[in-house]
């Protein structure tokens, strides 16, 4: 079976490593693409990056606070891409600020996950959104 494709949009090196480490704990392998901001992510989704295949992610892990184009702006743009409708998008952020949550929910995301990611299946994961992400990853 083709491995699940995950697009991580994240500007912080440590967070990227953190996500990679969390994903490595799963038994199955994933196809992982990293974009460091919204603009780069759009280029990847459009296949505009030289020597790189067009990315077709199953899951997007999206940071909110990023340079060039932040997560909310990114969401607003890709909302119009009909072909991206079945992609599960999870916001990853450190803050539980209400307005971010609201704005993201209005833009139709699947879940909202607080960093650092706690994705171990064996762990006692409390957040429903975290459970949703784990379910998506293992399915």
């Amino acid at each position: 079976m083709k491995p699940k494709s995950i697009l991580v949009i994240e500007d912080d090196y440590l967070d990227i490593v953190s996500i990679k480490r969390a994903l490595n704990k799963f038994e199955k392998k994933f196809e992982l693409n990293i974009a460091h901001n919204g603009v780069e992510a759009l280029e990847m989704l459009n296949g505009n990056i030289p020597d790189q295949k067009k990315v077709h992610p199953d899951i997007i892990l999206l940071d909110i606070n990023m340079p060039k184009m932040n997560g909310i702006e990114f969401l607003r743009i890709i909302k119009n891409y009909l072909s991206l409708n079945n992609i599960k998008i999870f916001i990853t952020t450190t803050s539980a600020e209400e307005y971010d949550k609201l704005a993201a929910e209005q833009l139709g995301i699947t879940g909202y996950i607080l960093k650092p990611l706690e994705l171990d299946i064996g762990n006692n994961v409390k957040s429903d959104d975290n459970k949703k992400l784990i379910k998506e990853l293992v399915s």
Binding site: D12, L14, S18, T93, T94, S95
Partner: peptide
């Protein structure tokens, strides 16, 4: 508050990681 929570906590979280 947002800046404190995000920007200040981010490097701290990095150290923690």
């Amino acid at each position: 508050a947002y800046v404190v929570s995000h920007d200040l906590k981010a490097p701290l979280r990095g150290i923690d990681h």
